[in-house]
């Protein structure tokens, strides 16, 4: 799975982190990336409003006896497929969104992408959250986090 880009959006839909491990997408201006992030945030919310089925009650941890996947994206935009790329969205309980853009692939790729996003979430919880000089919801400028992300995305490629 070739990873073209990774974006992290905060609770309000603002772009706080972006990295492009492999070339393969168009280069846009900084403003356009911010607009892209805001659009994704909005479409993610809209997608849950146009669902053709009724919302099902979530039985959660105690009902099923096993941990529900950390991806709290039951009815919002989860994945996107185009000719040139596929995009996967992982939303945490705290409202953070991790967006992975990869080369187009089969449906099975969605599971692999979710795994990558979980690993990135763990790196975020370690290297960003535990950095006392990082303010919440602000753009991420942590070198150690960059290195870890490179490590995670390299392993997959």
């Amino acid at each position: 799975m070739t990873i073209y880009s990774l974006y992290i959006l905060n609770k309000a839909g603002g772009l706080i982190y972006q990295t492009d491990p492999c070339p393969g997408l168009n280069k846009l201006s900084a403003n356009e990336y911010l607009v892209l992030a805001g659009t994704l945030h909005g479409v993610h919310a809209i997608a849950s409003r146009i669902s053709p089925t009724a919302p099902t009650p979530n039985t959660g941890f105690f009902g099923t006896g096993k941990a529900v996947a950390g991806n709290c994206n039951t009815s919002g935009l989860k994945s996107l497929e185009t000719d040139a790329f596929a995009m996967y969205v992982f939303q945490t309980v705290t409202g953070l969104k991790f967006v992975l853009v990869t080369a187009p692939g089969t449906r099975a790729q969605a599971d692999a992408a979710e795994l990558v996003l979980c690993r990135i979430y763990e790196c975020y919880a370690d290297y960003v959250m535990k950095n006392p000089y990082y303010s919440l919801d602000m753009p991420i400028r942590c070198d150690m986090f960059d290195e870890k992300v490179v490590e995670v995305t390299q392993v997959v490629v």
Binding site: N58, T59, G60, F61, F62, G63, A67, V68, A69, G70, N71, C72, T92, V93, T94, L96, C118, Y121, E122, Y124, A125, D126, M129, K130
Partner: peptide, 15 residues
């Protein structure tokens, strides 16, 4: 700490 907790345990929202 909550992000560390959620990332490590993979738990979803409590009902």
């Amino acid at each position: 700490l909550i992000e560390d907790f959620l990332a490590r345990t993979g738990l979803g929202r409590c009902q």
